[in-house]
């Protein structure tokens, strides 16, 4: 362990705003990359199901 206490860890030796903002925003972008295809897939499946139901009703 490089840090003695948890407070030290969050302070990052005075560089806290830089380190945590860089990590935070990067993590956000990574999460966004995961969320976008997941949501798109959910929407696609819902749309497709509706279409199938509609076509079955029409027949």
């Amino acid at each position: 362990m490089n840090f003695a206490t948890l407070a030290d860890f969050f302070a990052m030796g005075g560089h806290a705003p830089y380190v945590w903002s860089a990590y935070g925003i990067s993590l956000l972008v990574l999460l966004l990359n995961v969320a976008v295809p997941l949501l798109a897939r959910r929407r696609y499946v819902a749309d497709e199901r509706r279409r199938i139901r509609r076509e079955e009703a029409a027949q």
Partner: peptide, 19 residues
């Protein structure tokens, strides 16, 4: 973030290198 030692010149800001 926690285990790697800090850089002797740049201190902890060096940890940004890992992303």
């Amino acid at each position: 973030l926690a285990i790697a030692p800090e850089d002797y010149q740049q201190g902890n800001s060096f940890r940004i290198i890992y992303i």
